[in-house]
Amino acid sequence: MAGSAATLDGTAAGARPRRRQNYARRYWWFVVPCGAVVLGTIIFPWVFTVYMSMHDFKLGGAREWVGSANYVKLVSDERFLLSIMRTLYFTGLSVVIPMVLGLLAALAFARKFPLRGLARTIFILPMMATPVAVALVWTMMFHPQLGVLNWLLQQVGLPPSMWVYSPETVIPTLVMVEVWHWTPLVMLILLGGLASLPIDPYEAAKIDGATPWQAFWHITLPLLAPFLVVALIIRTIDALKAFDTIYVITQGGPGTASETINIFLYLQAFAYYNLGYASAVVVVFFAIIILLAMVLLWTRARVKDA
């Protein structure tokens, strides 16, 4: 990078970049301590997981090289494949709904109205609250006989639901908790985007007699597109990783009806102690996340060009 810049400059192609580099290298020591910790707690686990995934790893320390056997087993493990499907189902809903609601909320909070600060603070409380604590309260609200949610349904004339106690409704119910929890983050990212939009196009549109709806559709949405993509990427990754609330509320149940990849991984590793097999799950799971993130980043690059 520095080299090409200097050649473009035409002069002192050799000397200047080197001095520049030495200058930068002096800051190396600022990064070293933190780098050591990152190496130990973040990079070592990545590498070791790949190593473990190629072994039959038992808790006592016994290990045996099995090559790709864990991966071969995964591909034919119906329970794992179903957990992928459930994860995608859960993620799809947990991305689309917060995106729509988050956009609506951001548009609302971008306007000035009385008590706006207070309303916004309350709105972001769910994402700061301790997931386990919140999940407990939801669990009590889902109780089929005594829960407050079925009472609410009754008040508006709807039949009671089994919520997390039936295989059909468990995932939509968990999505509801996820939406409640993480819509605020989408809202904050989009609110930041709205605040950065230029004002001129709106004035021009007003002069041209555009309706508010036309202004939203033809000005706000295209200008907001990069922020929408960032929110989409973050939301997708977080939804794929969802664990705490699902684990606390259902532990993957009833049966395996809400067993997502993360729950499957947890059970394999820390309930059955199939550490090698679980490591293979981690590698595959990680690949899925990176793949989706790359697709979304590619979308982002295209949005930026357009």
Partner: peptide, 22 residues
């Protein structure tokens, strides 16, 4: 270095646990 931090942000917390647990 920033990319490493970004990937750390993407990785599910659970996946650090198996190696660190051992």
């Amino acid at each position: 270095a920033a990319v490493v931090i970004l990937i750390a942000r993407i990785t599910p917390g659970l996946s650090y646990l198996i190696p660190l647990f051992l």
